[in-house]
Design a protein around this nucleic acid. Structure first.
Lengths: 189, 189, 189, 189
DNA sequence: CATGAATGAGAGTTCATTCAT
DNA sequence: AATGAATGAACTCTCATTCAT
């Protein structure tokens, strides 16, 4: 399963070959069929394995702004340190279009993610620490879409996340009102 | 080429079969090889054809805010009316990872898009009609990433675009401008 | 492999078709690929099989003249009884020009043959039973070339070999030895 | 036709492609079909062209030994200066097995060659300047076979021809009888 | 659990040949 | 005389899958 994951990261689902997976593991390709009756099954397992790797380090308590910031940071770090994870996710998003099993896994995973985002945004909105015009649901979708798009350009993910975060934060730092001190500076890390 | 495009939209590059393309056109598959020596060549042609379909209806003059709004609207309409175009673009983005020819086409296309966005954002910033803290380059990347991510959920593209536009527009809470003026009426979803 | 050999004898390497080989054996052509990954591999196997069929019945002891004569006889008999072997050898010689694997097999095989010939000729020369002016190396090459040429006209091989043998044997006119003694009785054609 | 000849010399009949021939000539491959209706026709033309290149510089008069020697020399020189000619001849000999047209051309060409050889040998025999035990017909076949075999090892053709010539010349240079002065020395050129 | 031989559908590609222009 | 589009048969090779062991 992990070998399959690695292979997908390397050559995509289009280039995924059962024989190669088996060889990487060090077993006969027939033995692979013993564990995964069909290629589809392996793909589903890879999908499940991949989404299981995402454990949103989303604290439930604390300042929503901080939680949102750390969420972006966690994503940025993950993207930096485990680019494979995002590479495979892109592949999975594409495959989900035509593979219901994969689609189900992705939808479920995304639902959890969306829920976390919506709750955090709603709290921030209620607390007045976020741009008041933000619609939590719409912005959650916006964040999800942005992250998905940013996967394709890992090198620019940081700047993209920073800009989005800045926009979400709220009223942009007008000179006559003090901005949120600890977050207004452009994060570059 | 168009048949290839349609087929990619339907079954993806992974399912693209030359024989099927030829059959859709009504010619022998050998004849297809007469025009596109290799499958790669056909894929490149499909890529070129696809990006050529994007004619950013980006006026050079006028209020940058209006131009940006109409840009989003144009994308939303295109996404609604020609979802195939975006489906194939997703496929192309994936394929670009491993196919230098496709990558070149995508990079070039994206560069033009980015340029238009940066210019419009910079003008809006200079004119004071946009959120003053926006970085044109970063926001251009943000928009591109968002659009790319939104392709995967065409049904939610409208709300995503609207939310992003609202954030870019600026602080709706500024004291000297009535809130919700130019953003509330634009909601189309 | 043997089916491949037979097919080459029949239609040449130019006409060698994997599907035909597989069919002759009674297996699917995919199964053939299971055993010989590539056509080249099968060709190499055919080459190895073919040269392995040549077991020069070259005794190491005894009168060099007798050994040489029996060598020619063995070749003539082989050519009569297994013309396929020579047909394929001709094909292999041609293919060796462009296929390094085949070339290596042929060179090795030929080296063994040459060695046997040179040794026999040298012994005969030393023993005084052969034409004194013969150069063992040159004559070995001459024999090899003649045999290779004779493969193309199997029907005339006997007379060619006999004539060559007679010339190698020595001067039938020498005063101290009765002419036609050991050569006239050997004519078999 | 000449382009075909060159191509056969390079890649053999097995690798001969009409499109390549046409391209080498600088015409469309359809135009080639205008001149040679079928590939077979082109092959036949190549065969005819090839054998036409062999003009045995066989004088009809003079000492048979000298004529034979010069025949060998001419062959050796041709082999040195125009190896393509022999390369293609090898290909033709192989192809003649399965292509009646080519076979006819080769047989006719060979018949002329054989006739020259037989006549020269017979004259030499009659004149007493050759090994008396030589059978003109058998030796002609021997020479032809040897030349055919020597084509496969152009580098060793000289030494092979020299050795064969020495053997044909006659009684080998016994010490007590003067050999043919001008021919007994080992030719090395 | 594991293997390797076997399968069959089908992939991209090649190439001599034909035909309308 | 020459072209280029079109053809179709056939090629080697791939790969997920099955089955007997």
């Amino acid at each position: 399963m992990q070998a399959g994951f690695r292979l997908v990261a390397e050559v995509g689902f289009e280039g995924l070959r059962l024989r190669q997976v088996a060889e990487d593991v060090g077993i006969d390709h027939s033995t692979l069929h013993h564990h995964f009756a069909t290629k589809q099954d392996l793909v589903a397992a890879i999908a499940a394995y991949t989404v299981s790797q995402f454990w949103f380090t989303a604290q439930e308590d604390g300042d929503p702004v901080v939680r949102l910031r750390s969420h972006f940071d966690a994503l940025a770090r993950l993207l930096r340190e485990h680019p494979d994870l995002f590479t495979v996710t892109v592949e999975l998003d594409l495959r989900a279009r035509r593979d219901p099993t994969v689609r189900a896994a992705m939808v479920e995973h995304e639902a959890g993610w969306r829920q976390v985002l919506v709750r955090t945004l709603a709290e921030g909105l209620a607390g007045g620490t976020l741009n008041r015009e933000i619609d939590p649901v719409a912005t959650a979708e916006l964040i999800i879409a942005t992250v998905k798009g940013a996967r394709l350009v890992p090198g620019r993910a940081d700047v993209i996340f920073d800009q989005l975060f800045a926009l979400i934060l709220g009223c942009p730092l007008s000179d006559d009102r003090p901005p949120n001190e600890e977050t207004s500076e452009k994060r570059t890390s």
